[in-house]
Amino acid sequence: MNYTLHQLQIFLKITQTKSITQAAEELHLTQPAVSIQLRNFQQQFDIPLTEIVGRKIYITDFGKEIALAAEEILNQVQAINMKTMEFKGQLVGRLKISIVSTGKYVMPYFLSGFMKEHPGVQLQMDVTNKSRVIESLQDNEVDFSLVSILPPSLNVDKLELMQNKLFLVGSSVSQFQKKSYDKNIFEELPLIYREEGSGTRMTMERFIERNRIAAVKKVELTSNEAVKQAVIAGLGYSIMPLIGIKNELNAGVLRIIPVKGLPISTKWSMIWLKGKMFSPIAKAYLEYVRKTKKEIIEQRFNWYEQYL
Score class of each variant (00 low, 15 high):
P263H: 05
L8K: 11
S174T: 12
K104M: 03
M85E: 09
K56R: 12
P48E: 05
V133W: 06
L38T: 02
Q37F: 02
F41E: 07
N129F: 06
Q163F: 02
R206K: 11
E25T: 14
I80Y: 08
L235F: 05
T200H: 03
V127M: 09
E295M: 11
P152N: 11
M82F: 14
F186A: 01
Q90N: 13
K64N: 14
A251P: 00
W272S: 05
Y58D: 09
K246Q: 11
L159R: 01
P241C: 11
K88F: 12
L249I: 08
Q7M: 14
K18Q: 15
I256C: 04
M85V: 03
V219H: 13
S223Q: 12
Q43L: 12
E196A: 07
K293D: 02
V121L: 01
W268G: 01
K246N: 02
M125H: 06
N302L: 07
Y193Q: 06
L27W: 05
K104T: 01
K283I: 00
V34N: 04
G234K: 11
N81Y: 14
R206G: 05
E86L: 11
T21Q: 13
G63C: 13
I66P: 09
V216E: 04
I296P: 12
F114Y: 08
F114P: 15
I297A: 13
K217R: 12
A33F: 11
I73F: 00
I243D: 05
I185H: 03
D139V: 03
R132K: 10
W303Q: 14
K179E: 15
Y288G: 13
L161F: 05
L74K: 04
V259A: 11
K18R: 15
T222F: 13
F167L: 10
E205R: 10
Q43S: 14
K291R: 08
A69Q: 14
L137Q: 02
T222K: 14
Q122Y: 06
G252T: 07
S171Y: 03
L8I: 01
H6R: 15
P119K: 12
Q31W: 08
M82W: 10
I149L: 15
T128F: 05
E295F: 03
I297Q: 06
G170V: 07
S98T: 03
L123D: 07
F114W: 05
Y307D: 00
I66L: 14
E117A: 05
S101K: 14
